[in-house]
Structures are given as C-alpha cells and as structure tokens.
Design a protein around this nucleic acid. Sequence first.
RNA 1: GUGAUUGUAGCUCAGUUGGUUAGAGCGCCUGAUUGUGGUUCAGGAAGUCGCGGGUUCGAGUCCCGUCUUUCACCCCA
Length: 414
Amino acid sequence: MASNEFQPLQGMSDIRAPEIYIWRMIEEKARTIFACYGYEELRTPSLEKLSVFKRSIGDTTDVVQKEMYAFEDRGGRELALRPEGTAGTIRHLAGRGEEGLNARVFYIAPMFRCERPQAGRKRQFHQVGVEATGEPNPLADAECIALQQHLLDAWGLTGSKIQISTRGAMDDRQPVVDGLRKALQPHLAELCEDCQRRIAENVLRVIDCKNEKCAEIVRRIPSAIEFMSADSRAYLDQVINALKNMGIEVELNPQLVRGLDYYVHTVWEITHDALGAQNAIAGGGRYEIALGKKGIPGVGFAMGMERVITSLEACGITADQFVPRGGIWLVSLGEEALAENMKLARELRAKGIHCGMELAAKSMKAQMRKADRSGAEKVIIRGENEISKGTAMVKNMAEGSQEELKLEDVLRTT
RNA sequence: GUGAUUGUAGCUCAGUUGGUUAGAGCGCCUGAUUGUGGUUCAGGAAGUCGCGGGUUCGAGUCCCGUCUUUCACCCCA
C-alpha cells in the first residue's frame, strides 16, 4: 500500500476500471434518453461565487452553513465548490434572458460537500440531474418524474420507490409552520430533545424525525399538506393523476421533507433498500430561484450516481458486465515480426479495430497468456515463416482453431 | 462537527500473553526440450506492518498524536 501522504483527500476517490464501465453505461444511457426528451447538456464550472449558493439553496440551510467547501481565493473573493447542480444551472439560465425561462438542460457532474463520509456519501460525489424551467405546471412535474423513471428502467434498476409530497406555494409556508407548531404544542413534553428545539427552528424537521415517539405524535396531528391552500393541494393531485395516467406508481408521503429553500409545490424522493441510512438515490422538486431581477421557476431532479451504482449492484448489475471484450491480439516472434506487427496494428486500429500487442520480444507463451487475459477473440501470430511468406496465423481463441492466411486476406476479413 | 471502527505484499486476510531473517491464498513473473492461452505441477519476485512520537533490552503486537477506511448521528444525492 502506498503511503497515504499522497492519497486522495478523505471521502474522494479515483474511479478506475473495471468500475468505470458501469459509470460509462449509466452516462451513455442517460444521454440517449435525455435526447429523447429534448434536454441539452450544460456544463457549468465546479467553482462559483459563494453567493450563488447562498441565494438559491438558502443561507440558513445545512448544506450552505456546514457542508460547503467555501474559501477565499487569492484575490479575497468568496468562492465555493458546488454542493449541488441546480444553483449553477439556474445562474446560467438567468443570464440567458427569455430563453432561459423555458429551457431543458441536463448535467452529469461532480459535486462537493465537506461532510463525514459514510455509506452512500462521499465528499466528492456525482450527480446526473436535469432542470426544466417554466411556469408551474403539474404536467411538467409529472413528465420530469417519468423521465427519471425512464432512466432507472434503462439502467436496469428494480425495487426503487417514488415518494411524493408538496411544499405548497410560497404563500402556504407560514400557515404550515404556524399550523404545525400549534398542533405540536400540546405534545411538547413528549417530543425528543432535538424536536423540542426543532419546533422553533425548523418545524418541518419534526415531521420526519426518526424517533418512534415523535413519529407517533406526528401521526396523530394533521399533516403539513392539510394546512395548505386548496390550490396547492389541487396541484399535487394533478401531478399524481398525471403520473397514474402514465402508469407510474408513486406513494404519497406528507412526511417527506426536502430541506433546500428553493422548493415550492411538488417534491419527491426515490429510495432503494440496498442503501444504508442514506436511502435516497434521487431527489427532485419544483422550485423558484431568484438570482436575477426575477425568480426563475422550474422543476428538476438530481440522482446520486454512487447510490445508483450501489442499488444496481444489489440488483445483480455490476461493472464487469460492461467491460469491453473482444478485439485482436498480435503475437510477434522475433524482432522483425515485432516491427511488422507495429505496422499491422497501426492499420487495424486505423480501421477502428481494438487491437493489442506486447511491445517487446517475449516468449510466445507469455504473449498468448496476455492475449487470453485481454479477452481477444482472435490472435494473429507472426514469426519468421509468416513474414517471409507474407502470411499470418489467425487463431480463434474460443474454438482454439487456427489457419494461415495471406496478410491481405487478414486485413480484408477483419 | 459528534460517536464508534479500520489500516500487514497488487488483492483478500493470518500473525498466538510484545521475543530470532513478517506468513497464507489469489494474482504476477519464469520454467515443465523446438512457435500456441484458459487446467495442472515446480520455482521466483514482491511488504519503510498508514505516518510520527513514546514505553521497553526488544513493538506489526502496548500508549499518545495524526492521516485514512468503514458505519451511525446531523443533513443530503
């Protein structure tokens, strides 16, 4: 093991073969599907002004207050590595005027959060996400969830659950907070210590407290949704109906709380049992973010790629299934054959053929072993005999058969 | 940030109450008569025992610190 003086930072890791191949499968399928829905890729910088995140995610949220890599650069500017993708995306769209108000973009990118690593949580992690800007529209929210379901299906994930809820319109926030506080007041003494504090600071957090006693009390009081306006409740119903219409099952969970400030109306989460305590593979919601003169409304989601991979593995879908196999291996016997094979490899590769060879005069046995391990379908063997005759031995690795062909025939048939 | 937990060859791990040159399996390399892989057999290379201090005649084994791993809390994807 290498000394860890030069190892990656805590919670950050190198992604290499063979694991890299499941990443590539996920990315390739995602790009294909995004194209079907009319989403364009957007690559924003990893580093932004701190204010971009403070303004959109919320100054008082945990993500901003205690989880960001925030620092001053050499010029004394306040910067931060992006902890999520929505803020930067909206920052970009806000700069595009009219066209930014009706855009569909996706991203596949690393995010950074300075938290203690644990199952399903890294300090550098990766998200595939989308944002669709536009005025609130239940059908847009439903389509967004449908897209997400489409991705999971394409990747081969089974056993995930979609939980949905609503935060209501901006105007509903105060009534909800007041209503919940009032409903919880009589039970104050029975709540856990954390929740007694949360009532004042962030009532919504009481709703999803894992403490059994708190959960029991929460079940007895009205849900947050019941304090919202009729319009807000109708919006949620329309989203759920649209999903039902498309054959997508969701579970209404009024206890679902999403902490970022920008959410309004529909919020949802996709969970999977294969994960540990962090059981959400994806989260999404409708939002309104004000980074310019006016707020930009939209809907979007983000999926944690590491968590998706963990869930896929539990479904028996692993990286080794996506490792590329096949191709050709060139075996060279003697210096002359080695030189000739360098030329042959160049020609084959120019034709787009995957081909490998030993770049030194090694024994045939050693070269055959490498050929086998490379997963090559065919091996082309050339020694003094073949070079002088202008031929090559072509061996089929699976069958073990081989035949001597003229070099031009080899080039024509491969 | 809090609380646990881990760190020995490329990988997975043994290393007994601190005591000679730190082991195994897998992998890797070489060979088993002429130019043929996946099996078998034989041999071989490979470890500053995470790092830094300390205790001791002596530390992979004990103590402290530090970094890292894994897990939970908090929160999120």
